[in-house]
């Protein structure tokens, strides 16, 4: 379950050591924008040690490395891959080739370290106009790609427009990202809401992202995590419906029916898959029931 992903600066021990209690399903330890160029080495070593020695509990750990047009990204991977992160986030991903470059280097490291192949996934950060246009190609460039991630701040700069709270300027990009991800069969995550002091706006923004089909949303402040989790959790109505679907399927099977209808609507495979997903989340959130 990955409703919320919280960015945390990679060179700040005080924040990293409390990562797991901030309520986020995943934390993104950032070696890129949150770290000054002169501190890239120290953040890299700190994040490596934190992953090696600190517990992150139930919180999934993702590491944002530096982009492939820098001198840092290979060193970042050298240090981080042995710690078996769940996902690596390569920023400024614009083409399928970009993904393949990172993929190849990770494979090289996995082999060298005797690690299981393709154990480490990728969540490319798409934050340029070219990246958005190539979103499907990026999402299907490698088996490692588990999800794609929209970065709205850099994107608006690239689009020559201003980032607003309403986000009309990125509505095309959002829709395109969701479409590309779903076409490629991967998850898709929304850009952070950047007004840290707006406790209402985060709900609106997260609800909008959910309505478009995003799997979850990122945050740059722990204050937004609760709202994101609430919005991206299944509602009791969703959960009830999911159980009804599964029950209808069970009865249909018992009766040897090929097609099953619920409330006058045919239940097809995608509906069942969604229902299963909803129940899995419900169970994880302690809202599941006995079968």
């Amino acid at each position: 379950m990955r409703r919320s992903m919280l960015f945390l600066p990679g060179n700040t021990p005080n924040i990293i050591q409390n990562a797991e209690i901030l309520g986020a399903d995943a934390v993104i330890l950032d070696l890129e924008d949150a770290v000054a160029p002169t501190e890239k080495d120290s953040a890299r070593i700190l994040v490596r040690n934190a992953m090696r020695y600190m517990g992150f509990g139930r919180c999934e750990v993702i590491v944002r490395i530096n982009s492939i047009d820098t001198d840092f990204w290979r060193k970042d991977l050298d240090a981080i891959i042995p710690q078996r992160p769940s996902l690596i986030m390569p920023p400024k991903t614009a083409t399928a080739e970009d993904v393949k470059t990172v993929d190849a280097y990770i494979s090289e490291l996995e082999e060298k370290l005797g690690m299981e192949k393709n154990a480490v996934g990728l969540i490319p950060l798409i934050e340029t106009a070219l990246g958005v246009e190539n979103a499907f190609k990026i999402a299907s460039a490698s088996k490692r790609v588990k999800a794609i991630f929209l970065g709205g701040e850099d994107l608006t700069a690239d689009l020559h427009c201003k980032r607003t709270k309403e986000g009309n300027e990125i509505s095309y990009a959002r829709a395109r990202m969701v479409c590309a991800a779903r076409a490629a069969g991967v998850e898709v995550y929304d850009t952070p809401f950047t007004d840290v002091n707006d406790d209402e706006g985060i709900y609106t923004d997260a609800e909008y992202a959910k309505s478009l089909g995003f799997t979850g949303k990122s945050a740059i402040s722990p204050r937004h995590v609760k709202a994101i989790n609430e919005v991206f959790s299944p509602s009791m109505k969703d959960i009830d419906y999911a159980y009804e679907v599964m029950e209808a399927i069970r009865i249909g099977k018992e009766q040897g029916k090929g097609a099953v209808a619920l409330r006058g609507k045919m239940i097809d495979a995608p509906i069942v898959a969604r229902a299963q997903q909803t129940i899995e989340m419900a169970v994880e959130l302690g809202l599941g029931r006995e079968a």
């Binding site: 021990p13 050591q17 080495d41 120290s42 070593i45 700190l46 490596r48 040690n49 934190a50 090696r52 020695y53 600190m54």
Partner: peptide, 17 residues
């Protein structure tokens, strides 16, 4: 008041530098 792994990271960084 740094944790052990933080102290180790900072010393290693200083050595590298």
């Amino acid at each position: 008041g740094a944790l052990d792994c933080v102290i180790r990271a900072r010393v290693e960084t200083a050595v590298e530098r």
